[in-house]
């Protein structure tokens, strides 16, 4: 089991995980790190460093995207997360196909679709967040190299629109680019963030996989630190390490619950279908 940490500040590169994922201007929902910072991080750590380029790429961005990939090809990166097939097309030119990790957020929901992409010669495929635990286990049986998010705020909405800016303009409010949305009849607070790539809305509770981890032995497991504070990330990394040593460590869970609440099991046991029965 590889535990990957998507880092939100470079101090986290010291944490005890197997590899790190660094955000870039071509990624969504990440802290943005420059090429220079990425290069320095690679020098600093012995562990694999991935970079995130999972935004939907528009025609005018192709040139800068290619330049960026060209620069990355000169660094000893472990891989590139991507969503748009433009990145695949460019990476092929730079012989980087075996470094690609497909991360389409919501799209990979069948093992056949997953294998379609793996068969293109890429390294790994991230599964859609809305898969159940049972489905993930089936993927593990059928697909060679898959990744899931095991901990963090799960995104549930990616818009190119500057929804929060437009909202504050419409109601003549100060422009806040971060906050919470609450649906009028639900007592749930969904984190929402607007950045240069658009607007992103997250589930109100933090996904955890404390109980499921032991079943994910052949899966790459990512802790997504976006929107989480550094202390909390450190704490969570410790718990997963403890669990990796002893999957039945009740102690870890009890300790967590003494300090934090607001946990969820995401879609593990929550099947969504065509219509409400």
């Amino acid at each position: 089991m590889e535990i990957i940490l998507s880092v939100s500040n470079l101090n986290q590169v010291g944490l005890d995980v197997d590899s790190f994922l660094l955000g870039t201007v071509f990624g969504v929902r990440n802290e943005v790190f420059s090429l220079e910072e990425i290069a320095k991080t690679i020098e600093k750590t012995d562990k694999p460093v991935y970079v995130n380029m999972d935004k939907i790429i528009h025609e005018d961005e192709l040139e800068s995207c290619e330049k960026f990939i060209n620069e990355l090809s000169k660094l000893d990166i472990a891989g590139i997360y991507y969503s748009d097939m433009a990145v695949y097309e460019i990476a092929k030119l730079y012989n980087l196909l075996d470094k690609l990790v497909l991360n389409q957020h919501t799209l990979i929901t069948s093992t056949d679709d997953c294998r379609f992409y793996l068969d293109l010669g890429i390294r790994r495929v991230c599964l859609a967040r809305e898969l159940t635990f049972e489905e993930i286990i089936e993927f593990k049986k059928q697909c060679s190299d898959i990744e899931i998010i095991i901990h963090g705020y799960l995104n549930m909405f990616y818009s190119k629109r500057k929804t929060l800016t437009n909202y504050s303009n419409n109601y003549k409010l100060d422009n806040e680019k971060k906050g919470y949305l609450r649906e009028e009849i639900r007592d749930e607070f969904y984190p929402v963030v607007e950045d240069s790539t658009g607007t992103h809305i997250f589930q109100d509770k933090i996904l955890n996989s404390f109980n499921e981890l032991e079943n994910f032995s052949d899966i790459s497991c990512r802790i997504d630190s976006f929107l989480l504070d550094s202390k909390y990330v450190e704490y969570v990394v410790d718990i997963y390490n403890e669990l990796r040593k002893d999957f039945n460590s009740e102690n870890a869970l009890r300790k967590y619950k003494e300090k934090y609440s607001n946990l969820s099991s995401g879609f593990y046991y929550k099947k969504s279908t065509y219509m409400k029965k």
Binding site: I56, R129, M156, F157, Y158, K160, I201, Q203, T273
Partner: peptide, 23 residues
């Protein structure tokens, strides 16, 4: 859609209805 088409699971999460399967 106000989101990128297909990149939204608000409906899945809030109502258990799968947006990408017609729900």
């Amino acid at each position: 859609c106000v989101s990128y088409s297909g990149r939204c699971t608000l409906s899945n999460y809030m109502t258990d209805r799968d947006a990408n399967r017609g729900g």
